[in-house]
Lab assay of single mutants.
Amino acid sequence: VGDQVLEIVPSNEEQIKNLLQLEAQEHLQLDFWKSPTTPGETAHVRVPFVNVQAVKVFLESQGIAYSIMIED
């Protein structure tokens, strides 16, 4: 199991704000291929294997929908 690319769908401005804060966490080494800008629009982010669980827990705790787009 390696890195994953998640497709994330924020449903409101609050969730977009939370994702932008997540993007700013440099220690997570997230690679946003497509940043969140509009509710209902997908964002794509590559998550290093060591941080996959932490990111998924965060998304679930914020009620942000996501799916695994690419499993490496």
Rank of each mutant, 00 (worst) to 15 (best):
S61C: 08
I64R: 00
W33M: 11
A24H: 09
A65W: 14
P10F: 14
Q62M: 14
M69P: 04
A54S: 07
V52W: 13
Y66G: 00
E26V: 12
Q53A: 12
V1N: 14
H44C: 15
L28Q: 03
Q25A: 11
N12H: 03
T37K: 07
P39C: 04
Q21T: 10
L20H: 07
S67K: 13
F49R: 06
T38L: 10
V1W: 13
Q62F: 14
V1R: 14
E14T: 09
I64N: 00
G63N: 08
P36F: 05
E71S: 11
E13N: 10
L6N: 01
A43G: 04
G2D: 08
A65P: 13
V47W: 01
L30N: 01
D72K: 10
Q21C: 10
E41K: 06
V57M: 15
R46T: 05
K17Y: 13
Q25C: 12
V45I: 10
L30F: 04
Y66H: 03
F32D: 01
E41A: 10
V9Q: 06
I16A: 03
V47E: 00
V57C: 12
Q53E: 13
Q29G: 13
V45G: 02
L20R: 12
G63T: 03
V5Y: 10
A24V: 07
T38N: 08
E26R: 10
W33G: 05
Y66V: 02
F49P: 03
Q62K: 15
F32I: 04
E41C: 08
I64M: 05
E71Y: 12
V52C: 05
D72T: 11
S67E: 06
E71A: 11
R46G: 03
A24Q: 12
R46F: 10
P39R: 03
L30P: 01
S61P: 01
S35Q: 13
D3M: 14
H27E: 11
E13K: 08
F49T: 06
V45W: 02
F58C: 03
I16K: 02
D31A: 12
P39Y: 04
E14Q: 09
V52T: 05
L20N: 06
I70C: 14
A65R: 12
E13C: 12
G2P: 09
L59S: 00
I8W: 02
F49K: 08
T38I: 13
G2C: 14
A43D: 01
A54R: 08
A43M: 12
E23M: 15
S61M: 11
Y66I: 01
Y66E: 00
N12I: 02
P36W: 03
F32H: 02
A54C: 08
S35P: 14
L20Q: 10
G2V: 09
K17S: 08
E41G: 05
V57P: 00
D31Y: 15
G2Y: 13
N18I: 15
K56W: 03
V5R: 04
Q25H: 07
L28K: 03
F58L: 06
L19W: 01
Q53F: 10
Q21K: 15
E14S: 08
L20K: 11
R46C: 09
Y66W: 07
E71C: 15
I16V: 11
L19A: 01
D31W: 14
L28N: 03
A54W: 14
L22R: 02
M69C: 12
V55E: 00
Q53I: 11
E60Q: 08
V55H: 00
F58K: 02
S35T: 10
E14G: 06
T38G: 07
H27T: 06
I64T: 01
A43Q: 03
Q4L: 14
L59V: 01
Q4I: 15
S11H: 10
E60V: 06
D31G: 07
Q29D: 08
V52Y: 09
I64H: 00
L28C: 07
Q4N: 04
W33L: 15
E13G: 06
I70W: 13
P48W: 04
E60M: 07
S67C: 09
P10T: 04
E7P: 00
L30A: 03
H44M: 15
F32L: 03
E26S: 13
T42C: 08
I70Y: 13
V55W: 02
M69G: 04
I70Q: 10
V52F: 13
I64E: 00
S35Y: 13
E7H: 14
E60D: 09
N51R: 05
P10Q: 01
V5E: 05
I70H: 11
I68R: 03
E26Q: 12
E26G: 14
A24K: 12
Y66N: 01
L22H: 03
E41D: 08
L28E: 02
R46Y: 10
K17W: 12
V55A: 02
R46Q: 05
A43L: 15
T38M: 11
A43V: 15
D31F: 15
M69K: 07
E23D: 07
G63A: 04
V47Y: 01
H27G: 11
E60L: 06
V57E: 13
H27R: 06
W33P: 04
I70A: 11
D72E: 14
A43S: 10
A54E: 11
L28D: 02
V1D: 11
L20S: 05
H27M: 07
Q53C: 10
V50N: 11
G63E: 05
E71K: 09
G2T: 09
K17A: 10
G63Y: 04
V1M: 10
S35E: 06
L6G: 00
I8F: 05
G40M: 06
G63D: 05
H27I: 07
Y66S: 01
K56M: 14
F58V: 03
P48T: 04
V45P: 01
R46I: 05
V1E: 14
A43Y: 15
P39E: 03
V1A: 13
V45H: 01
L28R: 03
V57T: 13
K17C: 08
L28V: 04
Q4D: 03
S11L: 12
E41M: 09
V5G: 03
K17V: 08
N51T: 05
P36Y: 03
E41Q: 09
K34D: 10
D3Q: 08
I16C: 08
V47F: 01
F49I: 07
V5S: 05
V9E: 05
H27S: 11
E14R: 07
I68F: 05
